[in-house]
Simulated assay, not measured.
Amino acid sequence: MQEVYEFLKSAKTYYLATIEDEQPRVRPFGTINLFEDKLYIQTGKKKDVAKQIAKNPKVELCAMKDDTWLRISATLVEDNRLSAQEDMLNHYPTLKSMYKAGDGNTVVYYLKDATATFASLTGKSKTVTF
Results as ranks from 00 to 15, higher is better:
Asp37Leu: 05
Asp66Trp: 08
Pro93Arg: 07
Thr75Gln: 11
Lys46Pro: 00
Tyr99His: 12
Leu70Gly: 03
Asp66Asn: 15
Thr68Val: 15
Phe130Pro: 02
Ser125Ile: 01
Val107Asn: 04
Leu121Glu: 08
Glu20His: 14
Arg71Gln: 11
Ala54Asn: 08
Lys45Thr: 03
Asn90Ser: 14
Val26Asn: 06
Asp79Ile: 06
Tyr109Pro: 04
Thr106Ser: 15
Gly123Pro: 00
Gln52Met: 10
Leu70Ile: 06
Leu82Thr: 10
Lys12His: 07
Thr129His: 10
Ala17Val: 07
Tyr110Pro: 03
Ala54Leu: 09
Asn80Thr: 10
Met88Arg: 04
Asn56Leu: 10
Gln23Asp: 10
Thr18Trp: 07
Glu78Met: 11
Tyr110Gly: 07
Leu8Ile: 05
Phe118Arg: 04
Glu20Asp: 15
Glu6Arg: 14
Arg81Glu: 14
Thr68Tyr: 14
Phe130Ala: 05
Lys96Cys: 05
Ile53Thr: 06
Glu22Thr: 11
Thr43Ser: 15
Thr122Lys: 13
Thr115Val: 15
Ser97Tyr: 00
Glu60Tyr: 01
Val59Pro: 01
Thr31Pro: 00
Ser10Ile: 12
Leu8Thr: 02
Asp79Ser: 03
Asp66Gln: 14
Glu78Leu: 13
Asp48Val: 07
Ala116Leu: 05
Leu8Val: 08
Asn90Leu: 14
Lys58Asn: 15
Lys112Ile: 01
Lys51Leu: 06
Thr43Ile: 07
Val77Asp: 07
Ser97Thr: 14
Tyr40Phe: 15
Thr117Asp: 01
Val128Asp: 01
Arg25Pro: 00
Tyr110Ala: 08
Gly123Gln: 11
Met98Lys: 09
Thr122Leu: 11
Val128Gly: 04
Asn56Tyr: 09
Ser125Leu: 07
Phe118Met: 00
Phe7Arg: 06
Glu20Thr: 03
Leu111Ile: 06
Phe29Gln: 05
Lys96Gly: 08
Val108Ser: 09
Ser120Val: 09
Glu22Ile: 11
Lys124Thr: 09
Tyr99Gln: 07
His91Pro: 00
His91Ser: 10
Ala74Glu: 02
Asp66Leu: 12
Lys45Gly: 04
Tyr40Glu: 05
Lys46Tyr: 03
Lys100His: 08
Lys38Tyr: 10
